[in-house]
């Protein structure tokens, strides 16, 4: 059983969270497809968005991952991008939200 990653989200964002998480799953799908196609432009765009949006909802891990993935995409580093995407998939699977 993988360890849980706790994410503290402000109570006032409770209603916005389902939409946010749905979109993150959609991003994971798009990232995987883009990596298969070696489409670093698409990866860069999604990574940039992840970097910009994660922390705002309390998901600092997503912002940090987005930043690393953005750098990987910028240098067309497929291996580094794959690592980030794997970590991202794991995070989405393992995180647990606590409203504060």
């Amino acid at each position: 059983m993988p360890a849980e990653i706790t994410v503290e989200v402000h109570e006032e964002l409770r209603a916005l969270l389902p939409g946010f998480l749905d979109n993150r799953q959609r991003d994971l799908l798009l990232l995987t497809q883009s990596l298969d196609n070696a489409d670093f432009t698409a990866i860069l765009r999604i990574a940039h968005n992840l970097k910009g949006v994660g922390g705002g909802y309390g998901f600092d891990q997503i912002t940090a991952l987005g930043e690393r993935l953005e750098a990987a995409a910028r240098s067309s580093d497929a291996a580094a991008a794959a690592t980030c995407i794997t970590e991202y998939a794991r995070f989405l699977q393992q995180h647990r939200v606590v409203f504060v």
């Binding site: 006032e12 964002l13 916005l16 939409g19 946010f20 979109n23 968005n49 910009g52 949006v53 705002g56 909802y57």
Partner: peptide
């Protein structure tokens, strides 16, 4: 154009 970012900003400003 980024939905999640826009929703969040709109939320805080309307509040």
């Amino acid at each position: 154009d980024q939905q999640d970012s826009a929703v969040l900003i709109k939320h805080y400003l309307e509040k």
